[in-house]
Design a protein around this nucleic acid. Structure first.
Lengths: 337, 337
DNA sequence: CTGTTAGCGCCTTCAC
DNA sequence: GTGAAGGCGCTAACAG
C-alpha cells in the first residue's frame, strides 16, 4: 500500500502538504489549486488509502476492543442472527466500543484464518461451529489472542457450551414418557460437527436404553435447511408406516416436515409427533402450524456470556481458563404434546 | 490505556524486555523468572493491553479493509442475516481480508455514532435502516469516511435502493387483477422509517387509484414481529367481515396471520388472501403453511452491491457518487393465487 | 540477561 | 505556501 510519503514524493511536495490536503484544510492553509490537483492525481495514481492504524495510533486513544467471531459459512445465518442479538445486549453494558467482526470460514479450513495466528488483527476471538478437524487444528495450534469456543469443549480453551447429548436425551425422554415404543424417526444434517452428532447420539442412546425399537431405515441424513426437512418428509411418506414421532436435529428441518405434512393432510401430532432442537428463531417455532415442541438452546445467552468472559480476560479479571455450561430447555407445544 | 512503557517503568526494566516477554520469547532470550514475574504483575496492575493498531503499524502491512455496517438495533436480526450472507458471497471475490463490523445503533440516534465522524475507526461505512431523523442528521453531517446508504436515497450519498413504493404497488396490482374490489387489509409496523411508509403508501395509493374501497379500520399498526402479526390477526377476527385480502409489510407479520388463521380453521386463500413483503428468510416463506405470496426484496444482492461499490470507492475506481436501484420480484404462492 | 534505538504511517507544531 | 521534526505504541536489530 502506498503511503503519504509516496504521494508526497510523486507530486514533489512534502508530506505535511499532503496531510493538510487530505484533512480538508487546504483552504485554511492556502494551498494553491495546482498543488492540490497534483496531489490528488498522485493519490489516484498510487491508489493511496490512509492507514486507519496509523491514524488511530496518533489520536488520543480511547479504549476499544475488536473481537472476531469465527463462523463457519455453511452454517445457517439464522443462528448467527441469534448470536449477534446476544452480543448486542451484552455490548450495551459497556461504556467503550466493542466491535464484533464476523469472520466467515470454510468448515474444516479454520487453519487458513490468519487472524487467529496474528496478534495485530483482533483483540480476541470467539470461535463457533468448528468441525472435528478444526478442533484438532485448534488443539495443536493455540491462537496468539485470547479465545473462547462457542458450544465446543476443549481442556486447552475457554469454553461456553451446552450438554448436547442431554439435548437429545431430553427429546427422547419426552417421547418415552408419552409411551411411544417403536417406529421413531430421526432427521439430521450429516456433517463432521461433534455437537450435532452428540445430540443425535443422545437421542438414539436414550431410546435404545429404554428398549425402544430404532430402525436405521428411520434415520435420515439430509441438508441442514428447511428444504432438507422437505426431502426427509418425502422419504418418510414413501414408507409403509409414518414414524409415530420424529426428532429433528434443528427447527429448520422440522419446518420442512411441517410444511409437507400439512400439505398432505397428515395430522400433527395425531398421525406423527414432531420434536426439534431449537436453534432458529424461537418466535418461528412458537408460531408455526402447529407450534413446534423444541429443546431450546439459549444461543443468545451463550453468546453474551462468551463476550462477557472474553472481556474479563482482556481486562485481567480472569486468571485461569473457564468452562461454562448452559442448560437447554424443553418447550412443549402442540406438535408433540 | 497503559502502554508497554508504563509496564517497563513500573517493573523497573526497559521496554524491550517487556516486549520480549509479551511475545513469548522469554526462554529464547533467557529472561530471569523474577523479571518475568515482576513484569507480569505490572501488566495486571496496570491492566495493560497491547495496542493492535501499533502492532499492525509495525508489521509488514497487508492490504485489508474494515467496513462498518450500521444497523438499527430494533430491526429484526433475520434481515441482518440476509445482508451478512450477501457480504459473505461478495467478500469471497477478494484476495485480501475485508472485515465487516456490525455497529448496532439506536434508531433515531445515529448521531451518537462516533465511528462515522472519525476517520481512524473504519475505512468505510454502510448505513442501513435509518429513520427519517437519522437521514436528516446524515444530510447535514457528511461522514468523514466513504459511505453507502442501504435502501435509502439521498442526493448527497452513494445509495443502493429498491423502489419501495413500487413494492406496495405490485402487491396491490396482484389483488386488483384478481378482481378484489373491497375489504382489503393492511398490516404494518408503525415507525419512522421511510421505506416502510413508502411500501404501504404504494399499496394504498394503487388501491385508491383503482377505486378500491379502503377503510382505515382495516389498517393495523403493530410491532414488526410474528407476534405483531398474531395481534393483527386477532383484531381482524373481531371484525364482522374478515378482509378478503391482507397486505403485510413484512413476512414476519404474515407468519403471525398464518398462525392464527390456521388455528381458527380460516382457509387461506379461500377465506382471506395474504400477500407480504419478503424481508425474512425466503425459504421460510416458501415452506410456510400455506406458502406465502411475497414481493421479494433482494436483500443479499443489495448488500453485496453495497460492498462492491464501496470497495470501488476505496480503490479509486469510482469518481462520482452512484445510485443503484434494484428490482423487487413478485413470487406468487398459495396464500394468494 | 537487559537496554538503546530506529522506524512503521500519520498529524501537528513550529519555522521558513 | 511549504518543509522539518517529534511522537503516538510497538518490535527487532544491535549493543552491551
Amino acid at each position: 500500500m502506498a503511503t503519504i510519503k509516496d504521494v508526497a514524493a510523486l507530486s514533489g511536495v512534502s508530506v505535511s502538504t499532503v496531510s493538510i490536503i487530505l484533512n480538508g484544510k487546504a483552504k485554511d492553509r492556502k494551498i494553491s489549486v495546482e498543488t492540490q490537483d497534483k496531489i490528488m492525481e498522485a493519490i489516484k495514481a498510487l491508489n493511496y488509502r490512509p492507514s486507519v492504524s496509523a491514524k488511530k495510533l496518533r489520536s488520543p486513544n480511547a479504549k476499544e476492543y475488536t473481537i472476531a467471531l469465527y463462523w463457519a459459512s455453511d452454517f445457517r445465518t439464522n443462528y448467527l442472527a441469534r448470536l449477534i442479538s446476544g452480543f448486542q445486549s451484552e455490548i450495551s453494558n459497556y461504556q467503550y466500543p466493542i466491535n464484533i467482526v464476523i469472520c466467515p470460514y470454510r468448515s474444516g479450513s479454520l487453519f487458513l484464518e490468519k487472524g487467529l495466528q496474528s496478534d495485530h488483527t483482533f483483540n480476541a476471538a470467539i470461535i463457533a461451529n468448528t468441525s472435528i478437524s478444526d478442533m484438532e487444528y485448534l488443539n495443536n495450534n493455540l491462537p496468539k489472542i485470547p479465545t473462547v469456543l462457542y458450544n465446543r469443549y476443549s481442556e486447552q480453551y475457554n469454553t461456553v457450551t451446552i450438554d448436547n447429548f442431554e439435548v437429545g436425551r431430553k427429546a427422547a425422554m419426552l417421547l418415552i414418557n408419552k409411551g411411544i415404543k417403536d417406529n421413531i424417526g430421526l432427521v439430521h444434517f450429516k456433517a463432521p460437527y461433534l455437537a450435532m452428532t452428540l445430540r443425535s447420539q443422545g437421542f438414539i442412546d436414550t431410546c435404545i436404553k429404554h428398549s425402544i425399537q430404532f430402525s436405521d431405515e428411520n434415520v435420515i441424513n439430509t441438508e441442514g435447511s428447511i428444504q432438507g426437512g422437505v426431502l426427509a418428509a418425502e422419504i418418510f411418506l414413501k414408507r409403509k408406516h409414518l414414524p409415530k414421532a420424529i426428532f429433528c436435529d434443528s427447527d429448520s428441518l422440522a419446518q420442512g416436515l411441517l410444511h409437507v405434512f400439512n400439505k398432505k393432510n397428515i395430522k400433527i401430532p395425531e398421525d406423527s409427533q414432531i420434536i426439534a432442537v431449537g436453534l432458529g428463531s424461537p418466535e418461528a417455532s412458537q408460531y408455526s402450524t402447529p407450534p413446534l415442541t423444541v429443546v431450546e438452546i439459549p444461543l443468545e445467552k451463550m453468546a453474551a456470556e462468551c463476550l462477557r468472559l472474553i472481556i474479563n480476560v482482556l481486562e485481567h479479571r480472569t486468571d485461569t481458563s473457564f468452562h461454562v455450561n448452559y442448560e437447554s430447555k424443553l418447550i412443549i407445544r402442540d406438535s408433540c404434546s
